[in-house]
Structures are given as C-alpha cells and as structure tokens.
Design a binder for these strands. Structure first.
Lengths: 230, 230
DNA sequence: ACAAAAGTGTTGCCCTTACACCCATGC
DNA sequence: GCATGGGTGTAAGGGCAACACTTTTGT
C-alpha cells in the first residue's frame, strides 16, 4: 500500500477547501455563508469553498475561493483541519481541507456574492441556520480555534476596523470567549502586550469620547514570525 | 467552481497519509522511518504512510498504515497538518494528510517491518538521514507540535514505558524541549498535575533506587476528554 | 443636571523560579 | 568508603484577579 506501488490505479477522492471566515460587526461574531444553488443541499447555507485545482497550493485555493465567492482579498488565513469521514458528502468521496480566516469589519463590508455562487451573507455564529454537509461541525471547531488564538495571541483586533476603542476590543473578547471581563484588568493586559498604540484620535459617540487605537506594526510582525511555519 | 457544479470532471489528486511516530529510548527522541524500495526516492528513508482507501476515515487510514508497515496498534494518533504544495511528490498531484503519533518505549519494541514495506527503523530526531519527499519538513512541524503538547498537557509519559522514574520523565522533557530543567521544580510541577501516581515499586540500578510511577487513569481520561473534538 | 460610557491603582494571592544539601545504594 | 544519581524545602518576585470611584461628554 506504499505510495510507490503505483502502477495500479487507485480510486481518488475529490479534494475541496472550505473556509470559515469570521468577522465582528454590530456586537456580533459573524461567519460568512453562501446559499447553495444546486443539489445536494440546494437552498441550504454552506461555507464558502470549492475544488482545489491541480498545481495550486491549498492555501491559494482557499484564498481564490474566497475571492471568487465573496470578493474578498488579502485575508488572514490558516489551515484548520482536514475532514474526510466517509459519508460527509452525499456525492461520494470528498475530502475537505478546512481553513480558518479573519477579516476586519472594514473588509467585511466589501463582501458581495461572486458570479458563480449563490447569495453570500453574514450570520451570527451563535445563531446559525441549518447548514449543508458537516459544515456546522467545521464551524464549531473553528470557533474553538478562534478562542485559543484570542487567549494566547493578541489577535482580537483582526476582527475589528482599522481603528477601534478599547471597549470595542473588550466586547470582541467577551463575545468570542463568552465571558465577562474586568475592564481594568483587560486594559492592563492588552496594553502590556505592546501590540496596539494610540492613534491620537478620539471616537465621539453618545457619551464621553474614547481614545482610538490601532494595532502596531510590531503586532503584525510578531504574528508573521509565529506563522512562518510550517 | 462550487462543489456542486459537478457534471464536469475535474482532475483529482491522490491522497495519502503520512505518520510521524515518536518514541523515546536510550536517552533519545526517536522517529520511525521506512526505507523505500521503489522509485521515486528508492533507498531513501521516508515516513510510514500510504494511500487512503475509499470509505475509510483518515485517522483509520493512518492507523492501518502503521499496522501494515510497522506492526504497531493502539496508538495515540492525532491529525497534524495537510501538505499539498505542487511538486511535493515527483509522481504528480499528491496531497498528504500528516498524522502525529506517539508510542511508549514498550510498544516501540514491537515494531518490525511489515510485508509490503521496506525496513523499518528508529532514528534520533536530531540526527536524521536524507529523507524522501517533504518528509523532513513534516517531521520538523511534528516536533514543534510535540513541544507544545509537552508544555501544555502532561503527555510526556506517552513516550515512556508503563512505569518510569521521575528522572526518566525529566530526561524526556529536557530532550524534547532542548533545555535543562530544575529537578525540584520539575517534580513539584508534575506531581501537582495529578496525572501520575506511585506504583509502590522501585527501580534498582547502579545507585540509589528510584520510585517508579505510572500515569493515572485520571490522566488518560483527561486527555480523552480534550480530544473529543473535532 | 443627569445619564452613560470612559478611564484609572492598589492589594492579596498564587504560581513560578532560583538555589544546595543529605540520602540510599552498588561496587 | 566513595561515587552516583535520588530525593527534598524555602524565599523572593512577577503575574493575575478582585474591587469602586471620578471624568467627560451629549442631551
């Protein structure tokens, strides 16, 4: 059964990528879904994704599908898990490499349904419609990964617009982690990470204005270094 | 490009699993390799692995290949990463789902080359021969994962025989993490985790006898719970 | 002036780290 | 009796959690 006993022809699976794309807007953690036009699961919502092409890196396939189906580019992407259980796709043997992705609230606004896909829409992760295939399971797993990332790295700001207040950032943490956080401790912790800096601007809203922050170049470099592998 | 536009026939990749199987023996962290009999990379060492069958779970395929090629069963297995870069296999389009696996020193002794594979042998991870395909990269990534696991969970003992001394366990940590640890702090930390218990036996060697420990049922349950997902 | 969110420090506790000596055995 | 690895406690410092009031604005 070695790869090298290769004169015989073995059956081959189809390989797809599926992308769990998160963002944060209006106080909700949201996931992008596409409404399927065709069977199986016509009119069900599903993760964006599709077949991998030959001579294409898996991550490139994920980026391409996101662009084709939702018009978004330049996105934080990382491999999540590969799902290959028999029966996960009624059409036959289909293995899916799932990716985990984040867009800022700014980028999220550019999303529009691509030509060859159905409608694209954002859904509250905690209130999803019935999903096609095993996509609910994939989202649950992605959410778990998002929680780890938020706790261990400072990646919360990837979900927000370019400038944001500390209260907004805290709201992201609270909603993703599903727990209430202490304001002072939160601020101390985030500021001590040295990953965000003041913009000097203020946000004016209903009440006392709040300082605006952006994530610092340092934070971006840190994350790039951490991802240099594999 | 949706999965559902499926009347056209897309080319399909071959899908394999490759397993990075670790153990610890004679003061070394070791990886199991198989000597390839056929081209490409004939006579090079490679990770155990092979094609996934239809109607087979990916993890089952990994377990099967380990059994066929090395005769080992009932192993700690978890998915590591999926490698699909173009050109990673000279035979064409081959995507590999890599698995991370650990056997105890006891189990490692049962390893023997299977019928349809070449020789099987254990190698010091820090002193590997030239490897086939992108297998060196896969091993480097698996090693990184092993380090995380050792730091965050108490899984060091999976590498050791059923009963072991604290000094042996410390040696595992030191060699995997490549740093020297303080004996008292190490013992305090491990014991406070409540994952190992005394067997009541002693190991008699050259010098003062050492207490033998085993990992407790609790540790096994904990790890099972943590892995219940995805 | 009042409602509402922004902003700010201190304390106690726990966990981590650094560190050195006696003990039990085999030879 | 000596060489060798086994085994043990304490003190200081850093990080984390708990906790309440003042400030600034819009209306």
């Amino acid at each position: 059964m070695r790869a090298s006993s290769s004169k015989k022809e073995y059956p081959k699976p189809s390989v797809t990528v599926d992308i769990v794309l998160f963002t944060f807007a209006e106080g909700e953690l949201r996931v992008l879904l596409i409404k399927r036009k065709r069977e199986p699961f016509a009119n069900h919502w599903a993760l964006p994704g599709g077949f991998v092409n030959e001579n294409e890196r898996l991550e490139d396939a994920a980026a391409r599908e996101l662009y084709e189906e939702a018009g978004v580019k330049d996105i934080y992407l990382e491999q999540l898990y590969t799902f290959g259980d028999p029966g996960r796709d009624p059409r036959g043997w289909v293995i899916s490499v799932a990716y985990f992705a984040i867009v800022s609230a700014d980028q999220a606004r550019q999303v529009h349904a691509g030509d060859d896909a159905g409608d694209a829409a954002w859904f509250n992760v905690y209130d999803l419609p019935p999903l096609a295939f095993d996509h609910e399971r994939i989202i649950r797993y992605a959410l778990q990964r998002l929680r780890y990332k938020l706790e261990y790295t400072g990646l919360g700001f990837l979900l927000l617009p370019e400038s944001f207040t500390l209260s907004q950032l805290q709201a992201v943490y609270e909603i993703v982690l599903r727990e209430k956080l202490d304001k002072r401790n939160f601020r101390k912790k985030i500021l001590s990470m040295n990953i965000i800096e003041e913009t000097g601007q203020m946000r004016h809203g209903d009440h006392r204005p709040a300082r605006l922050y952006r994530f610092s170049a340092r934070a971006i470099e840190l994350e790039k270094a951490r991802r240099r592998f594999p």
